[in-house]
C-alpha cells in the first residue's frame, strides 16, 4: 500500500475521532452543568462565525454587497432564498467590481 493510502486512512480515523469525540466525552456525565449547556448552545453561532468573518474581512466590495444583501434577506426569508440572493448579487457585482 502506498504512503498516500495510509495518509488517507489515518486522516479518516483522526477525522472520525473528532466527530464522535465530543459526544463520547459529554455523554459520560449524567448531569450537564448549566454553564456547559450554555456553552454548547453557543457552539453553532461561534464556529460558523469563524468560517465567515475572516473570509469577509479579506474580501472586497462585491463580496461585502453579497453578504449584506444575503443577511438582509435572511431576516425575512429562508436559507435558500438568502443563499440565492447572495449568490446573485455576488455574480452580478463581480462583473463590475472584478
Amino acid at each position: 500500500m502506498s504512503t498516500t493510502f495510509w495518509i488517507i486512512i489515518a486522516g479518516a480515523v483522526a477525522t472520525y475521532l473528532t466527530r464522535v469525540g465530543g459526544h463520547l466525552v459529554i455523554s459520560r456525565f449524567d448531569n450537564v452543568h448549566p454553564r456547559v449547556e450554555a456553552g454548547l448552545n453557543a457552539v453553532p453561532a461561534a464556529v460558523l462565525t469563524t468560517l465567515v468573518a475572516p473570509a469577509a474581512l479579506g474580501a472586497g466590495p462585491a463580496e461585502w454587497a453579497a453578504l449584506i444583501v444575503a443577511a438582509a434577506v435572511s431576516l425575512r426569508g429562508g436559507l435558500m432564498s438568502m443563499f440565492l440572493a447572495g449568490a446573485a448579487v455576488l455574480i452580478l457585482a463581480r462583473q463590475f467590481a472584478g
Partner: peptide, 14 residues
Amino acid sequence: FLLPIYFLGLVMGF
C-alpha cells in the same frame, strides 16, 4: 465565495 454566504445564513438562523 458561495460557502461563506451559506454559512452566514446558518449563523443568522440562530
